[in-house]
Design a protein around this nucleic acid. Structure first.
Lengths: 355, 355
DNA sequence: GTGAAAGCGCTAACAT
DNA sequence: ATGTTAGCGCTTTCAC
C-alpha cells in the first residue's frame, strides 16, 4: 500500500509568500509573527490570519540559525525506564512545554562512555541548556566543559557531582539527611544491626545516604560495621542477592535500609518467602515512595522523594537562567524529602530486638 | 557566584575557518566532513584532524536548513510517568540514538487538545517522522494530516486508530487476542462471572480487549452482561472504585480481568482488605507484566506486553522508511504477547465456582 | 579532485 | 510603522 503522501509533496509557505499576498515586506511579516511592539495591532492581526489561512509554519532551523538559539533543552539521564526518573522527565516536559521549549532526551544507561557520546550529540544539536543526572560510574566531568566554556548552562539533578573551577546549578534532595531519617527511624523502632543496601558508592545519592546512616548510628552509640553495607544493582534481583548476603552474616541484621523501593520490595518478598517476618524479625525502609510501596504487604516505609517536582524545578531554573541576560548565577536547590512511615518498619513499641 | 562561562563566550569555528587554515575551499571542507567519495582519502583525513583540533562542531541548524532534514524524530505519548510507556520510549531512544537520530518527546497527558498542540510543535520543529500513541479521547485524526500531506511518515504505536484515506504504519499487539487469552484463562479456571476493568473504550487497546473478552465468553456459551464492564481510570485508585462497583452488583463476580497491572494490583489490595480471597473467591488477571506483578502477593497473572521492543520496532520501522527513497510503504507490525500465569488466577483445579 | 556561487528561510541593524 | 539589506553556516550544482 502506497500512501498518498509520497505523491503530494509541495513547497512550503514562507514569510515571503505571506509578504507578497499582503503587499508588505518579509521583515514586517517576521515582526508580525513575533508580535513586535512597533507594529500596529491590526497589521499583526492581519498577518496572523493570513499566515494561518495559508498554512504557514515557521521554519525553526532558519530562525534558530539566525538567532543562534535552539529553544531546545537537552536531558541526559541514566534510564528512562525507571519509575523515578521517568517522573522527573515528565515534570520537565510539562514545564518546558509550557514555556515553549523542546526537550531532547537521551539515556546513558549508567555508562560514562554513552554519557559522553550523548553530550556530544546535545552539543552539536545546539541545546540552549543541558539537564543531566550522572551515570553511576561518572567520576570525571570533562565532557561538560564544552558547554560551560560556551556559556551553555548545565544543571545537574539528583545524581550530581562537584567539579572545582566550574559552576553549575543543582537540584537535589538532602540525601544525607534522608539517610539519617530512614536509619534513625529504624533505630527508634529498636533495630540495632541495620543492613544498608545501595548501588555504586561513587554516586552521591548512595554515598550521602551512607553518611546519614552512619551518623544516625553514631547518634545511638552504635559502631558502624562495614559488613553491613551491601553494594549491588538495585533492581528486582537485588532481593535475592541481599538475602544471600544476609544469610552469610554471622549476626543477622534486624533492620534493612534499602536505597530504593524496587530493591526494598524485592527484599521483603524474599524475606517473606524465607519465613522471616517483616517488621518483627527484620524491619525494612525503602526510598522513593513509588506506587508499589503503598500496595505491597506489609506496606513499605520509605522516603518520599519528589521526582516530578525535581524535574519541574530543574527545568524552570534552567529557563530562568536562559531568560536572564545577566551573568549566570548558579544555585543549588534542595528539595524537601519526607519519611513516610508504614507497616514494614513499625514495631508496636520501640524495644529490644526480637530473638 | 558567577561562573566563568559568562565571561568566555567566543566565536564558533566554522568550515570557513578550517578552509582558511588548510588553504582549501569551504565546499571541500564540507565534503570532507561528510566523507564525500570524490575527495581523496588523505584530504579527508587532514580535514577531519584539523576540524577536531580546532574544536569544530557542525552547526546542525545550518545543515538542516540546507538539506531540509532534521535527523530528529518526534514522539508524542499520553504519559511519560507510566511504566509501560517509559519503557517504550526507552526502546526508541536506544534504537534512534544508535542510528544517529535525535528524539523530541512530549506528552499529551491523555488530552486531545494537548496532543494537537504537540503535533504543531513537532511539525514546526521539522521532525523527519512522528511516532505517536494516541490520547484516550482522540477520535479525530485531522491533526496528523499536515504530516502526511508533507510526506512526513507517521507511525502509531500501542494506541492506534484507523483513518480512511490516509496511511500510516502501526506497531501494536493483538489486543483482541490478548483479551481473549486472559479471559479464556479465567474461564478455564472456573470463573463464570468476569468483571472487565478498563479505561476509555474509545481507545483501541481497551475496546479490542473487550472484544476478546466477549469472544471468550461466547466460546464458553456465557452471555455477556454489560454490567460487568467497568470503565474508569486505571490508576492506583481504581482498586477502590472497582471494589465499590463490585459490591453494588447483585451477583458478585468470581473473576476480574483488569486492563493494566496497576489497576489489577490495586484491586487485589482492596479485595484482600475486604477479606475476599484471591484467587479462591475472585481470580484476577492483569495486563502488562510490570515488575510489581511478580512481587505482590498473590503474584499476578498477566499479559506480557513488550514495551521496550515495541519502541525499538516503531523506531527502526521509521528509520527504514526515512532511509528508503522509494514510495513509502506502510505496514502494521503485530508483536506477540504472552499470558503469564501466576498465583492470582490459579485455582488448583478447574471446576465450579466457590460459593 | 576542487572551487565559485547561490540560496535554504529567517531576523535585525539600519534607514526612512 | 515599515522597508532594505546583509548574513547566520551549511550544502550542492555547475564549472574547470
Amino acid at each position: 500500500m502506497v500512501s498518498e503522501s509520497s505523491i503530494t509533496r509541495r513547497k512550503e509557505v514562507t514569510i515571503y509568500d505571506i509578504a507578497k499576498v499582503l503587499n508588505l515586506s518579509a521583515s514586517t511579516i517576521s515582526r508580525g509573527l513575533n508580535n513586535h511592539p512597533a507594529l500596529r495591532k491590526e497589521t499583526i492581526q492581519k498577518i496572523m490570519e493570513t499566515a494561518i489561512s495559508m498554512g504557514y509554519q515557521q521554519n525553526t532551523f532558519a530562525s534558530n540559525l539566525r538567532r543562534n538559539r535552539s529553544n531546545t533543552l537537552g536531558v541526559i539521564l541514566p534510564r528512562l525506564d525507571s519509575n523515578f526518573q521517568s517522573s522527573v522527565v515528565s515534570g520537565m516536559e510539562r514545564m518546558v512545554n509550557q514555556k515553549g521549549f523542546n526537550l531532547i532526551i537521551s539515556q546513558s544507561r549508567e555508562s560514562v562512555s554513552k554519557e559522553i557520546a550523548n553530550t556530544s550529540t546535545m552539543f552539536s544539536s545546539r541545546v540552549d541548556g543541558l539537564l543531566i543526572s550522572l551515570a553511576c560510574d561518572t567520576c570525571n566531568l570533562d565532557h561538560l566543559d564544552k558547554f560551560l566554556l560556551k556559556g551553555i548552562p548545565v544543571i545537574m539533578f539528583d545524581r550530581v557531582k562537584d567539579r572545582p573551577g566550574f559552576q553549575y546549578s543543582k537540584v537535589i534532595i538532602d540525601n544525607e539527611r534522608a539517610g539519617f531519617d530512614a536509619t534513625n527511624h529504624l533505630l527508634d523502632q529498636g533495630c540495632r544491626r541495620i543492613l544498608y543496601v545501595c548501588d555504586n558508592l561513587m554516586s552521591n545519592v548512595y554515598s550521602d545516604r551512607l553518611l546519614g546512616y552512619k551518623k544516625a548510628l553514631r547518634g545511638h552509640q552504635i559502631a558502624h560495621d562495614p559488613e553491613l553495607t551491601f553494594v549491588n544493582e538495585l533492581d528486582e534481583l537485588s532481593g535475592e542477592r541481599a538475602l544471600r548476603r544476609l544469610l552469610e552474616l554471622k549476626h543477622r541484621p534486624d533492620g534493612i535500609f534499602a536505597a530504593n523501593d524496587t530493591s526494598a520490595v524485592a527484599i521483603i518478598y524474599r524475606l517473606k518467602q524465607e519465613g522471616i517476618r517483616v517488621p518483627e524479625d527484620i524491619a525494612v525502609v525503602g526510598f522513593n515512595n513509588t506506587h508499589i510501596s503503598r500496595i505491597i504487604d506489609p506496606s513499605l516505609t520509605t522516603i518520599h522523594y519528589p521526582g516530578d517536582e525535581m524535574g519541574e524545578v530543574a527545568a524552570s531554573t534552567m529557563i530562568e537562567m536562559l531568560d536572564n541576560e545577566n551573568p549566570v548565577i548558579t544555585k543549588t536547590v534542595v528539595l524537601d524529602h519526607q519519611l513516610i512511615i508504614r507497616d514494614s518498619s513499625l514495631r508496636h513499641k520501640p524495644g529490644p530486638v526480637p530473638a
